[in-house]
Amino acid sequence: MRITANQKQEIANATLVKLDALANRRQVWQRDFYDKSNKALYALLSDCLGMYYEIKGSSAEKVVLEGIKANLEGRGIKVQTSTPVLTLIVKYVFNAERRRASAYSRALRVAAKESISVGNFAEWVIKVGGIEEVASTKGITDETIKKRSQLDNKVAEVKQLLVNQLQHPLSLVPKTALAHPADSAEYTLLIGKMLASGQTQVLSVVPGSTTAMIEQAIRKIAQELLNKVDEHIKAQAELAAQAAITEAANQAYFKEMA
């Protein structure tokens, strides 16, 4: 069903109202939560993704984008004819400096390419390793899927190892006034300094350890374990290759002697 020019303009106006509401939420986040919690940021970005799904391919897309561009230009923000839709949305909502806006836009483009739903966006970003990690990828591949599956499996193993380790902790840190049990997630984080001997001096509890922070730390442990496995496999492969070369050389030598 075709819609009239007036109807398209009404849709465009309604879309800008939604984007303005998102921009207002961004201001609150930037004022109260910036550098404190990724939860609010991921919620904003997931809603930006939702706006993209709403705009892209709609019958009023052209009029909506014209309205967004006019608003941005009115703010002194440069846009080009070829500027991607998601970049326009990010610029509108975040009014951010170029590098940060670019990272958000790239991350959202990867999410859209992988058909990540609005509701699953935050969890997906955390699993991948954060906005910068998502932004640095070019989209999903079979190898990416395989590695993510391996990492997810290893994360589950690490979580079970942590549960088992509760019976035999590496150390017990004295009670501190910096943190209280109610301030942290299931686990908490510590900060320390590694000595030349390989031992670590535990210096302080990190107060207010969030679930996202803990999840990221666990994934770091899991990734390092996977790296160690890869290093072992590579070393074994190199030894096998060297053994094969030596065997071939020996066979050639004895053949000449014969």
Rank of each mutant, 00 (worst) to 15 (best):
T210P: 02
Y34R: 14
F94C: 11
L45S: 03
R148W: 04
N153V: 02
T200F: 13
F33K: 07
Q150R: 15
V28H: 08
M1T: 06
R25N: 11
D47V: 00
L226T: 07
K127Y: 03
T141N: 02
K78D: 10
E224G: 00
A156Q: 11
E114Y: 03
Q165V: 00
V90W: 04
K127F: 06
A111N: 08
A43R: 08
T141C: 00
A122N: 08
L239P: 00
Y53N: 07
Q201L: 13
D32F: 10
S105E: 02
L72S: 03
S105V: 03
K138I: 03
G67I: 02
A40Q: 14
G198A: 09
A177V: 13
A243P: 04
K159V: 04
F121P: 03
G130E: 08
K69H: 01
Q216L: 10
A112N: 06
D152M: 07
A182M: 10
E132W: 01
S105Q: 09
I221H: 10
D230R: 13
A70I: 05
S58Y: 04
K78S: 12
R100Q: 15
Y92P: 04
L170N: 01
Q7W: 05
Q236C: 08
E247K: 11
A222F: 09
A103M: 14
E186A: 08
V128K: 11
E10C: 01
A21H: 06
V17L: 12
